[in-house]
């Protein structure tokens, strides 16, 4: 096949001259005319053929957008006896049934919460351990008697208030909290968007 030498004469440049006269291929037709119908059809068919895999892929890839976390509900966290009324927060694990895609976990720790009571108070305050700045896990600084986020050094008072200057745009997130007649503390477990001044619940 005499392709190597004839190729250079083809292509749009060939429009300008009778390319068929070049090279030894005797049965070359006339110079390629632009056949818009054929070109459009080729693009259309090729596009249509490639569409289903891409569409199916994107359809499945977007699946997480339609999913919502478990509805916020009150979860038993601790007994009131384990939260002395000394103003010092204590950390408790939040345990709940959790669904992770196909897996159902029964009674798994899903997060942590700080509980504290003011001196002589019956009321329990619950604060989420998730930093409102970037979502790190806030720790108690036993020496300085404050909360400190290990990631960017946001500091908070023991009641969760912001200590300026702080990378965190807002105070620690308080959670709704109930104590039943038997002294069992339940916390309404919620996640909030981080990095914004407003305390906004994640869906």
């Amino acid at each position: 096949m005499p392709h190597h030498d004839s190729r250079a004469t083809h292509g749009p440049a060939a429009n300008h001259g009778p390319a068929a006269n070049h090279g030894p291929a005797a049965n070359h037709g006339p110079a390629p005319r632009r056949n818009f119908l054929a070109e459009a059809l080729a693009i259309l068919c090729g596009g249509l053929a490639t569409l289903p895999p891409i569409a199916a892929g994107i359809w499945a890839f977007l699946d997480p957008l339609g999913r919502r976390g478990a509805a916020a509900k009150f979860l038993p966290v601790a007994d009131i006896a384990s939260v002395p009324d000394d103003g010092i927060p204590r950390q408790f694990a939040v345990v709940a049934d959790r669904v992770d895609a196909w897996t159902g976990f029964a009674a798994e720790p899903i997060g942590a919460v700080y509980l504290r009571r003011e001196k002589g108070a019956e009321k329990v305050e619950a604060i989420s351990a998730t930093c409102p700045h970037a979502g790190c896990f806030i720790e108690m600084d036993q020496v300085e008697k404050c909360f400190r986020c290990p990631c960017h050094n946001s500091r908070f008072t023991l009641s969760g208030g912001i200590v300026a200057p702080s990378p965190s745009p807002r105070a620690m997130d308080s959670l709704e909290c109930e104590v039943d007649g038997k002294g069992s503390i339940a916390v309404k477990w919620q996640n909030f968007y981080t990095g914004i001044a407003e305390k906004k619940v994640k869906p």
Binding site: P32, C45, G46
Partner: peptide, 30 residues
């Protein structure tokens, strides 16, 4: 490099890969 190996004997004029053969390819893919 070697070019398309044409079915012999060649009885019709040559054509370009685009759009003639591409159209047939695309229809087959579809």
């Amino acid at each position: 490099k070697h070019g398309l190996h044409a079915k012999q004997p060649i009885t019709r004029p040559d054509a370009m890969f685009w759009p003639d053969q591409v159209l047939k390819d695309a229809v087959a893919m579809l």
